[in-house]
C-alpha cells in the first residue's frame, strides 16, 4: 500500500534544509529508530544536494509505505538535468565531477534498504530510496 504524502521543490540550499526536516518528521512518524532516522536523513541530504548541484534543481516526492506490520518511507529525487553518462563511474567511491568527496551516491546506497537509480543523458536523473522500520 502506498500513499503519496507530498512533493517538495529542491531549488535552493534552503529547500535542502526543509527537505531534511520533512524527512526527519516523517521518519519519526513512521517509527524509525534514531540510527535509521539519521541514516535516512543523511542519504536524503546527499541526494538532494546532487539534485540541486548536478541536476540543476528538481523535486522530492515522499511516499509512506506499509508492508504487513512494517512501515516504510520512500523518497524519489527527480531532476531534468544532464543525466549521468557513466553510472558505473558515478557509483564509485571517491569519484566526483565537482569538488565533492565523491561519496554521496555510494554512501547513500549503503545507508538505505533500497536504492534505485534511473538516468538518461540529456533527460535527467531519478533516484528513489526506501527505508523500513
Amino acid at each position: 500500500m502506498t500513499n503519496v504524502a507530498l512533493v517538495l521543490p529542491i531549488q535552493s540550499s534552503e529547500d535542502i534544509v526543509i527537505a531534511r526536516q520533512k524527512v526527519r518528521e516523517l521518519a519519526i512518524k513512521a517509527g524509525f529508530n534514531v540510527v535509521n532516522q539519521t541514516k535516512f536523513i543523511t542519504a536524503a541530504s546527499e541526494l538532494a544536494r546532487n539534485t540541486l548541484d548536478y541536476g540543476g534543481g528538481g523535486y522530492l516526492t515522499f511516499e509512506e509505505l506499509i508492508n504487513g506490520n512494517k512501515k516504510g518511507l520512500k523518497l524519489v529525487f527527480e531532476d531534468q538535468g544532464p543525466g549521468i553518462d557513466n553510472i558505473q563511474l558515478a557509483m564509485t567511491d571517491g569519484y566526483t565531477t565537482g569538488k565533492g568527496l565523491g561519496l554521496g551516491l555510494t554512501g547513500a546506497k549503503r545507508l538505505v534498504n533500497e536504492f534505485d537509480l534511473w538516468t538518461e543523458v540529456g533527460k535527467g536523473t531519478r533516484i528513489s530510496i526506501i527505508q523500513w522500520t
Binding site: V35, K39, T42, R110, L111
Partner: peptide
C-alpha cells in the same frame, strides 16, 4: 548514530 552514518558514507 552520527559515527555509524559517517562510517557508512565512507568518510
Amino acid at each position: 548514530q552520527i559515527a555509524q552514518t559517517i562510517v557508512h558514507l565512507g568518510v
